[in-house]
Design a protein around this nucleic acid. Sequence first.
DNA 1: ACCTGAACACCGTTCAAGT
DNA 2: ACCTGAACACCGTTCAAGT
Lengths: 222, 222
Amino acid sequence: MYSTAVVRTPGQRAGITRDNVVAAARAILHEEGLAAVSMRHVAARLDVAPNALYSHVADKNALIALLIDAMLDGIEAPTSGPWRDRVTKILADTRTAMLAHGDLVPLCLSRQTIGPNALRLGEAILAALHVGGIEGEAAVRALQLMLVHTIGASAFEVGRRDDPDPVSRQRRGQETAAALDPATHPHTSGQSEAISRFPGETVFQLGLRLLLDGLARDAGNQ
Amino acid sequence: MYSTAVVRTPGQRAGITRDNVVAAARAILHEEGLAAVSMRHVAARLDVAPNALYSHVADKNALIALLIDAMLDGIEAPTSGPWRDRVTKILADTRTAMLAHGDLVPLCLSRQTIGPNALRLGEAILAALHVGGIEGEAAVRALQLMLVHTIGASAFEVGRRDDPDPVSRQRRGQETAAALDPATHPHTSGQSEAISRFPGETVFQLGLRLLLDGLARDAGNQ
DNA sequence: ACCTGAACACCGTTCAAGT
DNA sequence: ACCTGAACACCGTTCAAGT
């Protein structure tokens, strides 16, 4: 497929654009996962030398930032309906998009994403909060709070989904059997089954509801 | 310091233990950050060959898991006082520990941590929730919800703290100026200052309060 | 401006061998 | 069981050079 013999000499151009680079990276991300998204691998798929990418992207970090915003591409922001429903819809769609790109989720929390899609959806949420009487700095804190919940819950879910049986995996590395000892860990041992599960949709909706309830109440009290 | 000439022949032992490996990794983590925590670097600090570590640790993944649990080492779980204060104390201390080991935080969300410290603190939170009338599966979901918030907010904070001016950094890679256009992004442009800030302590305490309020209310209604 | 060749300074992990 | 030597198959990035 890719990495067929390159027949270009130093002076010739390959006709690569930044969109091409991002598209190739996305393809690799979906087909082989984040670990396979290396500069060299992306370059090979485009049939260019590894360092050719640096003409279109500052470094790998910048490429990842582009991938993150591209993940939010299809999400639309409703402009009508009750404000809480609007917020919930946007964040639920965001969660769905993140679950489809699991590898990328942990990176979303640890870097501020200010791509066009992130800005568009953030603006829509601030607009909806405004309708609900949440404005100014309070609205920004509310947005950040809900982003932490949405991205955090998604990362939590992906980690458990992609790592089916961490108990038996980690057992040959730590003394985990203590969790099952009712003497030292009565509550944990009784709920070990529930702990190993993570009903993502349920927890996401529950947390978002609790946050919105509280935020709406705080706004009303002022 | 390390990587002085190794004078051991194949048959001889270096006397390394797993605790030594973890300690060396922690030292590197603190002094040079997560990126510097490589198997080869850790081995060099212990004056052993890179592959010698595999006698004490399954792979790098297992080493990271040990580092994560070690991060929670000093946190104590209160056994008296109001149940909400107990939960808040444990999670606030967890947040503090995470902020001190910023690099590690994103990894905490994407992998289930079942080391002894994580289990100990989880048990303490479940015990406190029990006092508050939150039991069984509801308690587990409450715990997961609060962990998502605590770890998520920490990751959010670290990402912004360690990346001081992401706007000017990413500007040479995406069209971010749209955020400042009042026509398309009225709410965002008006709050761009507040958005670039993230008052970690405030947001953490706010979110935890809202979650606990809601959880307590839900428990009372049943 | 865009691309290649070559290189630098790294990675994690495995395999065979030594005591 | 614990460790070394050597190797495999990779990384991201830079520098000089070509058109």
